[in-house]
Amino acid sequence: MKGETIVFYLLAALTLVSAAMAVGTRRIFRSAVYLLSSLIGIAGLYFWMRFEFAAAVQIVVYAGGIAVLIIFSVFLTQRAGDDMPTPPMLRTIAAAGAALLGMGLVMLQLVAHPFPTPAVAEVDRSVSAIGRRMLATGDDGFALPFEVVSLLLLAAMIGCIVIAMRAKPNQP
């Protein structure tokens, strides 16, 4: 067995086990930490697949942004020290059944479906190539989604400013 394979299985185990613990634990702060470690495992998988840029962005966005956001909202809105109530047995069973059923169906489909063999030519996956593709308007360009996301971001920023300005309503 090659070292790479061992690393892959370790990363996969980290991702899946911590994801399962994130949805299973009853302490909300621990849940956030497990979620973060699962996301870092995914970043590790990206590194394993040699998509360094995607991995770094994954860590920046999730560890630096979303995990901190979630942890702050846990601190500010929840009683982070208390255990969450266990869900009713029936709901747990139903959810687990639905998830397992869906998983089984998807796996059946996956195993049955033959994927095309990879094309020989490997495309340049460097950061500058991704950047060019983001602004390209051609066949595999992403200018339209990029602009739509920019619009979304602008709307979010304006919304933030509006909410922040509404804090003092009765001042002239």
Partner: peptide
């Protein structure tokens, strides 16, 4: 920049 943001965690 990515890894240094793990510190805050």
């Amino acid at each position: 920049t990515a890894i240094s943001s793990l510190n805050v965690i």
